[in-house]
Structure formats: C-alpha cells, structure tokens
Amino acid sequence: MFGDYSIGDLGSIFVMQGFAGLILFSVYVLMALGLAIIFGQMGVINMAHGEFMILGAYVTWMTSNLFQAYLPSLFSGYFFLAMILAFLASGALGMLVEWGLIRHLYKRPLDTLLATWGLSLMLQQAYRSVFGAREVGVELPQWMLGSLRVTDSIEVPINGVFVMCLTVLITIAVAYVLYMSRWGRQVRAVVQNRIMAGAVGINTEKVDRYTFGLGCGIAGVAGSAFTMIGSTGPTSGQLYIVDTFLVVVFGGAASLLGTIASAFSISQTQSTLEFFMSGSMAKVLTLLAVVGILMLRPQGLFALKVRK
C-alpha cells in the first residue's frame, strides 16, 4: 500500500496524519484524564462521561452565541471564558450526580456502570429537549482559523496547535493537583485505605465528591476542545465513551503516564491507518489491536506488580 507514494510524500503523510492524530489524541487525553481519575482513583465506571463532555461542548456553544450577540468586540477571547464555564458546569453536575447517585454505589462497581448508563440516556434526552436534535457547530474566532505552513507540503491548523497546548497545560495541572497538592494526597490516601483515611480526619465523602467533580469538570473542558474538531449533538459523547475507556484500561488504570502513552498510541495508530483505508476499517483494526493486546496483557501498559 506504500508503493504509490514517494519517500518524501510518505514523510509528509505521516507528519500530517500524525498531526491530525494529535488532535484526536488531545480529546482522548482530556476525556481519559477525567475518566482515569474517576475510575482509577474511585473505582467507578462512569458511562455518562461522554455526556459530561457534551455538556461542556454545549456550554462552549452557548458562550460563543452570547458573545456574538452581546459582546462581539470581545469575541476573539470568548473561548477562554467558555472553557472555564464548561469546567464549572460539568464539574457542578458531576458533584450533584455523585451526591445523588454514585455515593450509594461505591461497593458495587458493576452497578455504577448500569446506573450511569441510565444517567447518560436521561442526559441525552435532556440535551435533545433543550438544544434540539440537530448538531450544532461553534464559530471559531478569526485568529484560530487558518493554518501554519511548516514546509511546502506540511500545514498544521492553528486550532489544533491550540488544543494541544491546552491539553498539555491541563495534564500538567492535573498531575500537580494529584501528586503535589495536599488535596491530591488526601485523594490517594482515600484510594489506598478509605477507613484509615477517615480515621485520620480526612473527610472522605468530600474527597469523593470533589474527585468526581474534578473528573467531570475535565470532561467539560474536553467538550470545549471537542467543539473545534466536530459538531455537537445529543449523542456525540456516546461515540467516544468506549474508545476512552479502552484508552484508560490500555494505559493501566491508575497510571497518569500510562493514560497519556495509551491515548497517544491509539490515536496515532488510528489516524495513520485512516490514510490507507476507510475510517471504519482503521477503527476496527485499532480497536482489535487494543483488545488483542489487553487479552495478552490485561493489566495494561503500565502497571506495578503489587501484592493482591
């Protein structure tokens, strides 16, 4: 299949496809980060994670409409505010859900999966009732359109670069919060020994609520980023949930580094394959490879050997 292209062509193809893959990678990482925090730290399978992402996307869409209508002079900067609002909206909904639903199910991980699936159905229908069934697209400010010309045959879109930078920043922030801050230590303490953490004065319920909220909030930001690469509809989130779960599991659930590495390898494989075959076959092959590797190495890419 490489025969028809010259070496130079192939190089450009790989760079361009690689870059296209990097945008997918960004959305995967942002989605997976939230999911990994919730799954890895709390053991909860959040099937409604895609809907939290889509909430962020809708918030971004609404913010852009508001700016267009009332503050057109500031439109170029709306995106930053939209991201913050997306984070807050998804995070707040996440905390509400944790309080109303998740906290009753901590001892039954398989049941959280079913309950959050029910939640995702309700959210989808809510979006459909509020925003309509049609997909909506967000208008980007002028400076994000256009692309950077790296060489004669290689061009990269500016919004892609922006999303990637954003992803890197958020990842660093999450790593800082989880591994450096006092709150992160509390989260990890609760993960390792809930009863003991409670006994030494950590408010485990509060830690759970904020952890879940943080995971959902990051999904909201992922939704903001998502608006740049796709249009938003009530069921758009569902398309990503299985992929993202595979990213988390493939990376080894509790490892932040593993999540990033696995998001990178999955998105790059898919995007590179997409150039040579239909999108659906590329996806089939990528998912098959991931499932195949998981069957051989169920603990994921990065996992410590620990006493069970």
């Binding site: 053991g43 089939v284 169920p298």
Partner: peptide, 21 residues
Amino acid sequence: GTYFAIITQAVAAILTILIVG
C-alpha cells in the same frame, strides 16, 4: 468484573463497525 465488561463492550463496538463498514 469491570474490565471484562469494558472489553465485551469494545467487541460489540468492533463488530458493529465491521458489519456497517
């Protein structure tokens, strides 16, 4: 447990995409 559930779900996704494709 949950890992198995996710893997079987992925298999369902793969088969659907394959049939449609």
